[in-house]
Amino acid sequence: MQILGLYNYWIFIVLMMCGFYVVISRGNLVKKLVGLNIFQTSVFILYISMGKIIGGTAPILTETATVYSNPVPHVLILTAIVVGIATTALGLALVVRINEAYGTIEEDEIHAQSEDEAL
């Protein structure tokens, strides 16, 4: 039971670490955003796993089913997905502008150019 009961959460942890690692270690601005998305999706899995009841069904009321999964995490995650895509779209728009201003989307090259400006 121990292993089975926590299996889903472990998947979430591994994914979350992957995404988080991409965000903070990579210098490419687009890749960082992809990482951020993986990071967020992993959190969605955490929430949805919390709401699941074994033997339950989707929370749409019908005549036949008696046990439903918890609808609240679903609602919260719907909201979170929307927030996620909004953030991604805005981040990508910023990347486009950065590329126009600096001609690159690599963090260290941008950094080098900014250093020159400061001097």
């Binding site: 903070i24 951020l36 967020q40 953030t87 600096y102 941008i110």
Partner: peptide, 13 residues
């Protein structure tokens, strides 16, 4: 622009 991007990443984390 880069400041906003950096804030976006940190803020979202």
């Amino acid at each position: 622009l880069t400041a906003a991007y950096q804030y976006l990443i940190m803020g979202t984390i």
